[in-house]
Simulated scan of single mutants.
Amino acid sequence: MEDTVNLLLSKNVQGKYVNDRQKAKEINLNVDTYIFYKLSNESQSIGVILCIDGKKYEDDDLNILSILSKQVTVAMQLYDYSEKNIKHKLIAKELNILNKQQKLIMNDSKMECNNEKELEFYHKPATVVGGDFYYAHKIDDKRVAFIIADVMGHGIVANYMVAMIKGAFKTLCYQYKTPGEIATHLNKILYDEFDKMGVFATALINVFDTQRNILSVSNAGHYSPIIIDENDEVVESLNCKKGIPIGVLPDGEYHSNTFSIENYPMVFMFTDGTLEIKNHDKEEFGLDRLKCFVKNNYKNNKNKIVENLKKETEKFTGNDNFDDDILILMLKNI
């Protein structure tokens, strides 16, 4: 029957009837008569309706088959649409759940570290579920550990990796004192899984001594923080020594960069989404513009900083839709 269907689909006519036994043999079936009409979706033939061994087929039969073929085609399209719609709804539901989970991870991470410093962030994923995330955890009365990371990719895979990083990071915070040690063991724990999935993550892993206002940072292939001093200047001398991203090498070692932020009212961390925003000329927003923005806005509260960043990036691009996640993290004066 498959050969017969292919033969009919190859014919240059949309439909046809044959009442002669000898001619009927051309469709490779032992029949006396036949009539067929193609099922067509736009310009593509997707099937046929075939009737055989009727007493005698006429033009009226061909017209009826033509109408029936249109009805069948519409029914098939509706079924296909319904199936795809259900799948899309299921995927959307799963992504919405993942998005809520990711928001919960980060919403719990806003905190006042001491009477002088607070952690605040802003996150806008490019898709429903993004690969950028931030998480902070109070280890004890003297220390807060926090991480800002950019997992390659988006969607369910990225969210899975985010959950793995968060779980491992939270455990390691109690086992190791320095961010370099935490990053080294985080990489060891996650390497195999990241390697299987073909992904990696850049990150800044931090431990903040809230009593002495001393910050230790380990840089896993990430951009160094933008630090502002009391004279409204960007501090260029504290660039954090950069290691390789998490998940690239199984035996990667990471180091800690430690400094006092007593006289630094803003430590601004970010993922690459903000830098890579492009205008109509394909020019990127870039690090220099971001430094200038932080320098001009660090005295504002979090809401004002976010509002001004949105205005600045929208003015630069001409729209508010970006290709990558936007995540900024601020360790700033209250």
Rank of each mutant, 00 (worst) to 15 (best):
Q101M: 07
D288R: 01
V248A: 14
D150Q: 08
K100M: 02
I244V: 13
A92W: 00
N63W: 07
I147L: 11
A201N: 09
N96V: 02
V13I: 11
V144D: 08
I86F: 06
N300G: 04
A149F: 13
F268Y: 07
K87D: 08
T210D: 11
L309D: 11
A168H: 09
D60R: 12
A220R: 08
F293P: 07
F194G: 04
I328K: 06
L9M: 12
D229A: 13
F316P: 13
K84I: 04
D150T: 05
K278N: 01
K89M: 08
A136K: 01
V128M: 12
D141V: 08
D325T: 06
N99R: 03
K295I: 02
R21C: 09
Y17P: 09
N300C: 06
G243H: 10
L62W: 06
E118V: 09
N28F: 09
P179M: 04
E262A: 12
D325C: 09
E284K: 01
T271G: 00
I261C: 03
N187D: 06
N300M: 06
D229T: 09
T73A: 12
P250G: 11
E116N: 07
I326S: 09
I244N: 13
F270P: 01
N308P: 05
N303D: 13
N114R: 02
N107W: 04
D320R: 04
L39T: 03
N114G: 00
L186T: 00
N303C: 14
L29W: 00
G54V: 00
S109P: 06
H154E: 15
I67Q: 08
L8T: 14
E118M: 13
F36C: 04
D3T: 14
H154A: 14
G180W: 00
N308F: 05
N333P: 01
T178V: 00
I244T: 13
I326C: 06
F322E: 12
H154R: 15
Q77W: 03
I182A: 03
A75W: 01
H255V: 05
K242E: 13
G198H: 04
N319I: 08
K170E: 07
I326K: 06
P125V: 05
A145P: 08
Q175T: 05
E2T: 14
N213Q: 07
S40E: 04
I228D: 09
F293K: 02
L50F: 05
M330Q: 02
N85M: 10
L249C: 10
I277M: 07
T274K: 01
T202H: 06
I205C: 12
L50Q: 04
N63D: 11
L329D: 07
K241Q: 14
M106E: 10
H88D: 12
Y37K: 06
F270Y: 07
M164P: 09
D281A: 03
E116L: 06
